[in-house]
Simulated assay, not measured.
Amino acid sequence: MTTIDVGLKAFDELNREIRSCTDPELVLTNVHGQRYIGCALTERAITINGTAGNALGSYLDGCAITVNGNAQDAIGDTMNDGRIIIHGCCGDAAGYSMRGGKIFIRDSAGYRSGIHMKAYQEKQPVIIIGERAGSFLGEYLAGGTIIVLGLHQEGKAPVGYFCGTGMHGGKIYLRCDTLPSDLPQQVSASDATEADLAEISGSLADYCAVFALDMEAVLANHFFVLRPNSSTPYKMLYTNV
């Protein structure tokens, strides 16, 4: 295992050092918002102690990244495979155009998480957010699964405004007692069935193991599932897979 004390290193210098390192396990300490960490990396494990900057894990292709702290905007931008775990909060646009892999956020996420997220055949991306997400969650969602657990939200809808705007594929699960009052016409909402929950049980078990949560307690609360309305005009613009 190789450790890099990041400090005030410029992001480009740091990323060159990461790419030149042949050790499959890497620990970055004293990280202060450096951008593009782990961009397009494959089979490696990176642990970040500190605050990860914008575009963490963009184009990720199999690497596992764990952040012991918060992360800024656009984590997992267009990621293809791998896993990003945030032991804190993240900024806006998490998982932008994500097409594979998993993003686990312990606390909350900013606006537009999962925007343009998509799926194809075996590529089924997943984002799980522990507390709440900001407005425009799942905007133009084309595939994959977004789950917001609403922890510590006292049953209130754990999302901001315009959840699922323009969605034409995929599913959004909300663990709460009441739906958002402003769901757009493109969204159809229903109580999650046992079959719905079975679809996400594997990812939930993984998330709960990472953050030491009691999965039975998580599943004891009510879930809604949001799907694209079959009459949405966006669906006809995309190829069925």
Rank of each mutant, 00 (worst) to 15 (best):
I18V: 09
H222Y: 02
V225C: 04
I115L: 11
A198E: 15
G82N: 05
S231F: 15
Y111W: 13
R112A: 12
I200D: 01
G202I: 15
D177R: 00
L28Y: 01
K156F: 00
A40H: 11
V27K: 15
N70W: 06
T165H: 10
G160H: 03
K118T: 11
A205T: 09
P228N: 12
N54E: 06
E194Y: 07
A220T: 05
H152F: 13
L14Y: 01
R175M: 06
H32C: 02
D182R: 09
I86T: 13
G130L: 06
V225D: 05
A55R: 10
R112S: 12
T165I: 09
L219P: 00
I75L: 08
A40E: 11
V31L: 11
C176K: 04
T193V: 02
L28P: 08
I84M: 01
L14K: 01
Q121K: 14
I48Q: 05
T145M: 06
G88S: 12
L183P: 00
L197Y: 03
R19V: 04
F136C: 11
Q72P: 03
T29W: 01
I147Y: 01
G95K: 11
S58A: 13
D107W: 04
N229R: 01
D73F: 11
N54H: 03
I147G: 00
Y111I: 12
T42Y: 11
I146G: 05
T145Q: 08
